[in-house]
């Protein structure tokens, strides 16, 4: 079996977000980059499936050379090799076209990624890749079990979940609790240095949308503190000031 896991290279969830160049560029100054948390869940589940079923596991990232430490981390976690499509991941349609092209070339049985990236929060690349390749796409996936050629998944819906059965191959956007995040061990980090990381060029330049500019939300006013012995005052404020009761 061949598994492809697509990963994003995104700012750590604790990063302070700010912009430069007239609010047209993300300010990377002092920002730590990580494997997208949802992608990291997909990767962790893929490593488990590989260990249980003897699969080969490839990671793919659409990104520039600065993403390579993040890709190496995925190799250290347990991927066998990596593909970096050498382009700025500026638009979901562009990224989906890249993934679909290289996924088709590789003939994978299972294509996993996070439910969404945590920078642009699009949540659509898995569906686009599925549609381009004519494969089922399921997201957000909370559990994934394989039995031969058939998978049992659960998908989160508002206030509950669906149980889904689907045959390989398919595309899934993953989230917790599909697997526990894996921390690379020393052996993994050592072997990751020599695992193949193939840099390939992007195909086409089609985009669905183009950035105009970024914007920060309006600043929050100061908090009004209320004495714990005077809960009535809070109720009064919620009713008459915030007008939410």
């Amino acid at each position: 079996m061949k598994i492809l896991v697509c990963i994003t290279h995104v700012p750590d969830t604790t990063s302070r977000i700010s912009f430069t160049d007239n609010d047209t560029k993300f300010d990377t100054n002092g920002v730590q980059f990580i494997i997208g948390p949802y992608d990291d869940y997909a990767l962790a589940r893929a490593v488990e499936l590989k260990e249980a079923n003897g699969a080969t596991l490839t990671v793919l990232n659409v990104g520039l050379a600065d993403a390579e430490p993040t890709i190496r981390k995925a190799l250290a976690i347990g991927a066998d090799d990596a593909i970096r499509v050498n382009a700025e991941p500026s638009d979901s349609l562009f990224v989906a076209n890249q993934i679909a092209h290289y996924a088709k070339e590789g003939g994978y049985d299972l294509i996993l990624m996070g439910r969404e990236s945590i920078d642009f929060n699009g949540g659509v690349v898995h569906g686009m890749v599925g549609e381009i390749l004519g494969l089922p796409s399921i997201s957000p996936v909370m559990t994934l079990e394989l039995d031969g050629n058939t998978a049992q998944l659960s998908r989160e819906i508002e206030g509950g979940k669906e149980q889904i059965e689907v045959d390989l191959p398919f595309v899934a956007g993953c989230q917790e609790p599909i697997a526990e995040w894996k921390i690379p061990n020393m052996r993994g980090i050592m072997t990751a240095r020599t695992k193949p990381l193939n840099v390939v060029e992007p195909v086409g330049d089609e985009t669905g949308a183009t950035l105009v500019n970024f914007e920060m939300p309006p600043a929050k006013g100061a908090v009004k503190m209320i004495d714990a012995d005077n809960v009535g005052e809070l109720v009064d404020l919620l009713k008459n000031e915030a007008k939410v009761l």
Binding site: G122, G123, H126, G127, M128, G130, P140, E156, I157
Partner: peptide, 23 residues
Amino acid sequence: NSSLGTPVAARVAIKKGAGLVTN
């Protein structure tokens, strides 16, 4: 934007050659 709407939107956008924006 929902657990059904967003994944469906992705596939429709490809079918129709549309530009898609979520959130």
